[in-house]
Write a protein that binds this DNA or RNA. Structure first.
Length: 155
DNA sequence: GCCAACGTTGGC
DNA sequence: GCCAACGTTGGC
């Protein structure tokens, strides 16, 4: 089983939004980055776990845990002209963008802010989230980093 | 295939 | 709102 960190802007889709969905499950749609697409396709598997990370907000950080509950499949929003992430160059015969389904597992009682993560940068060396200039919305997390962050959260 | 222009991300 | 970093696009 692999571990991941997945970013979302809470104004757009928050951990609470996920928890309120039927079966606490949602497609992680809107990804329009080839590296992330390839990770979905080649590496992410149902049963993997992921940190839910709130970005572009007052207090960015890890706020919860979710489980990957599907393999990669075409993101329907790419075909929808009314959707924000509509891609006119993508076709149903040859879809360009993929998504996975994620299920809410728990909300951290004590979120781990980006500032806290940075304060522990020495222990989290190699974590892509903290790498300068790293902007990927989905990144792999090493098991030791996963455990360390959970400790920071008091879990 | 190069590379400049442009768009996006995301912390601050 | 600013800006640095990075990805994508498209002309050549």
């Amino acid at each position: 089983m692999a571990y991941w960190l997945m970013k979302s802007e809470p104004d757009c889709f928050s951990i609470d939004d996920l928890a309120r969905r039927p079966k606490k499950t949602s497609g992680w749609d809107g990804v329009r980055n080839y590296q992330v697409r390839n990770m979905f396709r080649d590496q992410m598997k149902a049963g993997d776990k992921a940190f839910f990370y709130h970005s572009s907000c007052a207090e960015p950080g890890v706020v919860g845990i979710m489980r990957i509950v599907s393999g990669a499949y075409p993101d329907p929003t790419q075909f929808d002209p009314a959707a924000d992430h509509y891609d006119p160059k993508s076709t149903r015969e040859n879809p360009r963008w993929l998504q996975v389904d994620v299920q809410f597992e728990k909300k951290l009682t004590k979120p781990v802010t980006l500032a806290t993560l940075r304060a522990h940068a020495a222990k989290l060396k190699g974590m892509l989230l903290l790498a300068p200039g790293s902007r990927l919305s989905v990144t792999p997390v090493r098991p030791e980093h996963w455990d360390y962050v959970l400790n920071l959260a008091g879990e």
